[in-house]
Design a protein around this nucleic acid. Structure first.
Lengths: 249, 249
DNA sequence: TCAATAGATTTGGTATACCAAAATTCAAGA
DNA sequence: TCTTGAATTTTGGTATACCAAATCTATTGA
């Protein structure tokens, strides 16, 4: 958060906009328009877009506008599979390398989350959840691991956010977080790692349900729209058409 | 390899130069000079440097020349620790998802490596070794995993190359590769994953030895150089840094 | 009425010019 | 001789101009 470079700040701004939904998944991200909109030149905007591309939030196409990423279920579950390996490693290393202070800070996050769960909006809550997992990765004392883990979390932001918004999993999430913290405190890798694995297993289940629900919703839309003219069978893959054309000759 | 974008080609060129030793570790990489040297503008050179920075081959400093990375032993072993988790996951998934053709191709690589080991130079040999491990990751059918794994392999290029040049580990490496292939063919995750873990454990040992040897060499140099004027106690970590201290209030 | 094509336009890629921060140099003074 | 500070140089950051590929529009011809 403390990087004061201009491309980083632009990337932070864009990331928020993307994740908050200002740009729809699948929409093109025109570097010239966004640059003028934010009042910066194209050069730092280009770098910002590359940063987001590295994080997987946008995908680059040769000689074409970058697109806001709209990953398929398989892509998301593939990402989670790697994330699981990274988090399990983080947990194991954190049991060995974390300082008592770091573990205490992780517990503090967990307790704040428990206390505020029903009191704040899901975006703020999710911020805490994010920090919880990032702190464990950092506590592994393996910077490369922490960095890669953070990149995967960023890439899975939207999916995890949607999953976390399902309040029905509230109790399970808090319980699992509690077990993870207890495992760290006991310096018990089996306990911590096992529960981390469990935690992410449920994330896969949740996400799969969400995709299924979304697909069902779309199918219903299509059929109810009438047989001859399906308005948008696909989720508006390219909603760009505000082509202004001149009236002169 | 088949990316025809200019920044990618520049990055490929620079990567080879760095890994072949044209640029020493710790040396600055001036974007203007290198751009004119290669006959391109600074803009694609900038992007190329960012690509290498992402791979960890160069490190960026705010408002300062990027440096050729010169990782410490801990940094390298940290990277290997993550690589191990990634390769173990790759092996496990490959046992499940790989096609018979993919496994056959991996075996072909292994047999070519066995056949040519004493006949070609270590750089070409290392190319095959690289492909062997990349192919396993790709055979996981998890693109995100393959990509992250490839990034870690690139980051560890130099260390792995130096380790692979130690011909004394020849037999062990070939034997381990053989066991890994056999595990894949048998679709036996325990066999494949276990040997992958073993393989990387030996890499850590090898690298640790190499660092120890290098440090010992340096220490010997310093003492034999005589007491008053050590010409280059360190192997010129930064050819240009007569650190000038300005007045500070 | 529709299809094909040519011209206009959008858009990313590249080159270059300018700026500001950092570093090196060098001269002046103690 | 050493310190110090100011000027110059070096170097990365940013803005802008130009180009080429891709796309879209609109006209024309069947």
């Amino acid at each position: 958060m403390a990087d004061h470079s201009l491309p980083q700040k632009i990337a932070d701004q864009l990331r928020r906009d993307i994740l908050r939904g200002k740009f729809a998944p699948g929409a093109p991200l025109k570097e010239r328009d966004n640059a003028t909109e934010l009042g910066v030149s194209r050069t730092p905007m280009r770098e910002a877009i590359r940063i987001l591309a590295r994080e997987g939030l946008v995908i680059l196409r040769p000689s074409r506008s970058p697109l806001i990423a709209d990953p398929s279920l398989k892509q998301v579950t593939d990402l989670i599979e790697v994330l699981r390996a990274l988090e399990m490693l983080s947990g194991r290393l954190a049991c060995i390398n974390a300082t008592d202070e770091e573990i205490a800070a992780i517990r503090a996050l967990h307790e704040r989350m428990t206390e505020l769960y029903d009191k704040i909006d899901s975006l703020d809550m999710f911020e805490i959840d994010m920090n919880f997992h990032l702190s464990i990765a950092r506590a592994s004392h393996n910077p490369a691991l922490a960095e890669t883990h953070a990149a995967y979390l960023a890439r899975l932001w939207r999916a995890r956010y949607l999953s976390a918004s399902q309040k029905r999993s509230r109790d399970r999430v808090l319980r699992q977080h509690g077990t993870i913290v207890a495992g760290l405190e006991a310096r018990n890798p089996e306990m911590a790692v096992g529960e981390i694995e469990n935690h992410l297993e449920h994330l896969v289940i949740n996400i799969t349900d969400l995709f299924a629900a979304r697909d069902a919703e779309r199918a219903a839309e299509v059929t109810s729209e009438g047989g001859h003219r399906a308005t948008t069978p696909t989720p508006t893959p390219t909603p760009k058409n505000p082509n202004r054309k001149r009236d002169d000759k």
